[in-house]
């Protein structure tokens, strides 16, 4: 599943970039994030309780940030699994200055498997967009 979305965060790119690579900010802004610990430079382990409305599942997994070119772009790769199945993929995130704000473009390649793929075809795409939108909104409001 390919997802492309854009969002505008009211801060300059360097602050947004710093936020996207700060585990403490990520823990507070990733929807449903219950734990997030750094396991190495730019590598994390996390527990997420995500989904839509009452249909939430708990996932544990790893994430890593690569291809960093501050403050323009980074690539986030992730893999997680839980009762409802697995999610893995990567997202290329590009930051562009837009006046006082930053335009964030995200091109993600997401693979889901198990129950969420089998029964969620109607909802997975929409849910993924919603979660990503929520995340960038949170980033915007969590900036120091």
């Amino acid at each position: 599943m390919k997802l492309t979305l854009s969002s505008t965060v009211p801060a300059d790119p360097s602050r947004v970039f710093a936020a996207l690579t700060d585990p403490e900010v990520l823990r507070r802004t990733i929807p449903g994030c219950e734990t997030l610990t750094a396991t190495g430079p730019d590598a994390y382990e996390a527990t997420l309780k995500i989904g839509v409305a009452g249909l939430k599942g708990t996932y544990t997994g790893k994430a890593a940030i690569t291809d960093q070119r501050p403050p323009e772009r980074l690539t986030l790769s992730f893999e997680g699994k839980g009762g409802p199945g697995f999610v893995r993929g990567s997202a290329a995130i590009t930051l562009t200055a837009d006046g006082d704000a930053t335009r964030v473009d995200c091109a993600a390649d997401v693979h889901v498997g198990g129950l969420i793929a089998a029964i969620g075809s109607r909802l997975v795409d929409a849910a993924a967009r919603k979660l990503a939108d929520d995340f960038f909104r949170q980033i915007g409001s969590a900036l120091p």
């Binding site: 889901v112 498997g113 793929a117 089998a118 029964i119 075809s121 109607r122």
Partner: peptide, 14 residues
């Protein structure tokens, strides 16, 4: 089956 080999017609909903 989608390109990842996921069965997306796994219930009577689909």
């Amino acid at each position: 089956y989608n390109e990842d080999g996921q069965l997306v017609t796994g219930e009577f909903m689909d």
